[in-house]
Design a protein around this nucleic acid. Structure first.
Lengths: 91, 91, 91, 91
DNA sequence: GGCATGGGGCTTTAGC
DNA sequence: GCTAAAGCCCCATGCC
């Protein structure tokens, strides 16, 4: 019964669900690892005599710039598309 | 003066800082990508007819510390009893 | 012209609009105050030695629709069974 | 046993918990009521010929102004305090 | 009428 | 342990 895939408990659906769950858990594990890497990186930075807070501020500022640039590029692309103009690829 | 690396402005320290910043940005980028992958995964799950909220609950239960969960359940039962509330679920 | 009240700028419509806006702002202010009261209440609860997270769960259970909760529990049990996961809680 | 107030189930703690929960539920009820009042207000506004979207925009702008003013006042107060200057009360 | 989007509230996590 | 910040969830709204 196709409409009840999510609710039945046939081996097939169970295997599919298990696959989804394992994929999710793997992704979460990777994300956690990256978080630990970042923490290490900042410890290392601190150990090298840099001011962590200042560097984080720098990162935030750079991120803000990138977001604005991305937004600007998106708007530009929209307008260009609207007037049928082909943007020369690399912004 | 080794202890002032973070405060001077020699090319060497600048290059080192730049390297740190680029590593950090790269890690953050990867983390963001994983977040997007997870979002996709849940969309796919939903498209396959599964109940996303339930699956997320399952993930939380699998991840969580069992002792903590037992403790939580015990306190909940105690409180419910204290106010004369019948816990509705056999979760 | 009655149909254009919202577009004209007679003093009468202006006064009416102002009245609406002030009523709305007052309601929003009250809602905000209630939010703060709730936050205080939970702080007090915590100060009295209760487990805030558990109490919030209780509130959710008391508020929630029982049929929905039963449905949720049923699906959760089904999924857990499908992937061979032993639900750890007798919630 | 004072330290276990939150965990025991004596009539006293139960009564206290029940009181907290009922207060919380009353506050949530009030908040919900205010939400409904707001909805009514906008219906009424619409019925009087005003453009609801425009009015909501107005409200948001006014709110933004107030938030900025509050922030400014807070900063000013901080500085004033830092230099030991007593602000003449009403900003 | 469902669906995509955005805002607000809540929860959880990282840092002091 | 507590507070600030990020992410997540839900609701309301506009759109197709």
């Amino acid at each position: 019964m196709e409409a009840e895939i999510g609710h039945n408990s046939t081996p097939v659906a169970g295997a599919e669900l298990k696959s989804f769950i394992e994929r999710a858990e793997r992704l979460e594990e990777e994300r956690k690892t990256i978080g630990e890497d970042l923490k290490e990186l900042f410890l290392e930075l601190k150990g090298r005599g840099f001011d962590v807070k200042v560097v984080k501020t720098l990162l935030k500022l750079r991120k803000g710039d990138k977001d604005e640039q991305a937004e600007f590029a998106a708007i530009l692309a929209t307008y260009a598309s609207a007037i049928g103009f082909q943007l020369p690829l690399a912004l």
